[in-house]
Simulated scan of single mutants.
Amino acid sequence: MTGEPQADCLFCKIVSGDIPATVVRETDTTVAFRDISPQAPTHVLVIPKAHYPDAGSLAAAEPQIAADVLREAAAVAAGDKVDGTGYRIIFNTGSGAGQTVFHAHAHVLGGRGLNWPPG
């Protein structure tokens, strides 16, 4: 949980450019890219460049970078013009919650009705 890149992490490889992604935004601390299996017209992942396994560990170690992820999620929504109609920011934490890549990331979903509860 040091924030250092992990050799076996898919998202660390996207950050380094070793794996291609459709990047929509990038800052000094974050990368936002389109999900390869979108669940809504807008489905973008916003990740910190630093590796932390989940949102809680990121927030504990790097609260400013956690805030950067949220700020970029809002910028993604504005860029895709779903900020006026509504969007969802989701952090899945743990395999039981559906997390499959253990690098903190936010899903930004919008562009269609998003009923609650999800599913």
Rank of each mutant, 00 (worst) to 15 (best):
I14M: 07
E4Q: 12
S16C: 06
T2G: 14
D35A: 11
G56F: 13
A60W: 05
A50G: 08
E62P: 04
L45V: 04
V69L: 11
P117K: 06
L70K: 02
I19Y: 06
R112I: 12
R71V: 09
P48T: 00
A7Y: 03
V76P: 00
E72A: 00
G111I: 11
A59K: 10
R71S: 15
A97W: 05
A55P: 02
A77P: 02
H107Q: 09
C12W: 01
S95W: 07
L109D: 13
A97C: 08
W116G: 11
C9S: 14
D83M: 04
V23T: 12
G111H: 09
G113Q: 11
I65V: 15
L109T: 07
R25D: 11
S37A: 13
F102T: 07
I90H: 05
L45G: 06
E26A: 15
A40E: 04
V24W: 03
A78M: 03
I89W: 03
T30G: 02
P117F: 08
P38R: 11
G56P: 05
G113V: 12
A21D: 04
V31P: 03
D68L: 00
A78S: 12
K81D: 14
G17K: 07
P63G: 02
S37M: 15
G86K: 08
V23E: 04
G84P: 11
K81I: 07
G113W: 06
I89E: 13
S37H: 12
Y52W: 14
P38Q: 06
R88P: 06
R88T: 08
A32M: 02
G79E: 00
D35Q: 10
H43C: 03
G110V: 07
A104S: 14
V101Y: 08
R88M: 05
S37F: 08
G86E: 13
L58W: 01
E62A: 15
H103Y: 03
T27G: 09
H105M: 10
F11C: 02
L45Q: 03
K81C: 10
R71T: 11
N115P: 13
P48R: 00
D35M: 09
R88N: 14
L58F: 01
A21H: 04
H43A: 04
G84Y: 06
I36W: 04
G79L: 00
D54G: 13
S57V: 09
A59C: 07
V108H: 08
S57Y: 02
A106F: 05
S16P: 05
W116P: 08
V15N: 01
E72S: 02
S95M: 15
G17Y: 08
D35H: 12
C9D: 14
L10F: 10
G84W: 09
K49F: 00
A21F: 02
A73D: 01
V46H: 05
I36D: 10
V101L: 08
T93W: 05
R112Y: 09
E4S: 15
P5A: 11
G96I: 07
I19Q: 11
